[in-house]
Every structure is written in C-alpha cells, then in structure tokens.
C-alpha cells in the first residue's frame, strides 16, 4: 500500500459517500445516471469474484464489500424507492450502455492477463470501469446546470483513478516485476474522459459560478 493508492481509495469512497448523501439527503437522484450506476455495480461484481478466495488484507476485504454493497444499494434505490425513482431523469439518461458492456467484454476476451474465467472478468471490469462514466457525463451535458453534490461526486470519481496512476508509477519504480499494463492504460483512458469535466469544474470553482457543461 502507498499513499497514492490510499488517497485514491479514500477519494473513491468519498465519491460514493457524496452520492449516498445526495440521494438520501435530498431524496432525489436528479442528474444521476442510473446506467452509470448499473455499470459500476457490474464493475465491482466482476472485479471482486476473488472476494472469498484471495484474502489480501482486512482493509481490502472491507473496501470490496463496501463498494459492492453501496453500488448495488444505489441501483436498487434508484429503481425501487418510490420517492427517489420519481426524480430519475429517464428521458435524459438514454446512453446505449449495452454497447459499452459488449465492447468491454469482447476486449477482455482478447486482451487479458490469462485466459481464465477470473482473469477475463477482471479485465472486463477494468475496461468497463474506464467507460462507465460516459452515460453520466452525457446526462450532465444534457441536464444543463449541475447541483453541487453531483459535481463533487463526479469530481472525486475522476480524481481517484488519477491517484491510481500515480500509484502505478510509484510501484513501477519501487517494485521489481511490477507490470499492470491493462489497468494502467485503461486508467489513463478513464482519467482522460474526465478531462473536459475537470476543466469546467475548475472554471466554475475559480469564478465561483454554477457548474455548467456545454451541450
């Protein structure tokens, strides 16, 4: 464990807590893409298949459980909770995310660490996570002004993978036999997708104006 990875995990956790706060405090999921939340739930379920077979540390196991439970709870809440689901922007959340699923799985069959069930699903989760934010970013562009909590949610979600890139650079220089090309390249793509969001987020923070993504 290094400071970059720990900071990244804490930012990831923060993004989930901010999203939970938004949904439970405002009893609304307006501006949140259900499709992105479904993709994230799949990412965690596909990535943590080794939850009960490979014990790494208490921290690792607890965080995996937190990510799986929180992501499925958010999807459940946006679909089933009578009050919350009324505020879901169904007509705006129209990104065809099944293409992202199919493309990620196809790529995982071709490019993986080892052609085993667990490794294919691990690579699938890595590729899917890189593109999972797309429905959310498209929804933000369509829904015009973005409320603070939603903006903070996306910001922390983007920042966490940027810290993971620092973690991979650090591990590359400090550990022998360290190579995580699949995660690293995918992480670079993932962070790059947030580039324009980060730019408009910084502008809104600097000018102290409402965050607005150009359509």
């Amino acid at each position: 464990m290094n400071i970059f990875r720990f900071a990244g995990d804490m930012m990831h956790l923060t993004s989930i807590l901010v999203l939970l706060l938004k949904i439970y405090a405002t009893k609304s999921c307006s501006g949140i893409s259900l499709k992105t939340q479904e993709l994230y739930a799949l990412v965690f379920l596909a990535r943590y298949l080794d939850l009960f077979t490979d014990f790494i540390s208490v921290y690792n196991t607890i965080m995996k459980l937190v990510f799986i439970v929180s992501s499925t709870a958010i999807v459940w809440c946006m679909k089933r909770d009578r009050v919350v689901r009324r505020s879901y922007d169904k007509q705006l959340d129209t990104f065809r995310h099944y293409f992202l699923l199919a493309a990620s799985f196809a790529l995982a069959l071709l490019v993986n660490e080892k052609f085993t069930f667990q490794e294919i699903f691990w690579a699938f989760s890595i590729y899917l996570e890189a593109v999972a934010i797309l429905p959310q970013l498209v929804l933000l562009q369509r829904s015009g002004n973005v409320d603070n909590l939603t903006g903070q949610y996306v910001f922390f979600l983007g920042a966490y993978r940027a810290f993971y890139i620092l973690n991979w650079i650090y591990r590359y220089f400090t550990e022998t036999h360290f190579s995580r090309w699949i995660a690293c390249i995918s992480g670079l793509v993932q962070t790059a997708l947030y580039a324009d969001f980060f730019y408009y987020y910084y502008i809104s923070w600097k000018n102290n104006t409402k965050l607005k993504l150009p359509a």
Partner: peptide, 10 residues
Amino acid sequence: EPEPKIHDEL
C-alpha cells in the same frame, strides 16, 4: 518464473 500475480488493488 514470476509468481502468479494476484490483484492486490481495489
């Protein structure tokens, strides 16, 4: 032969 890599990251 490097040891089989387990995914120790989240």
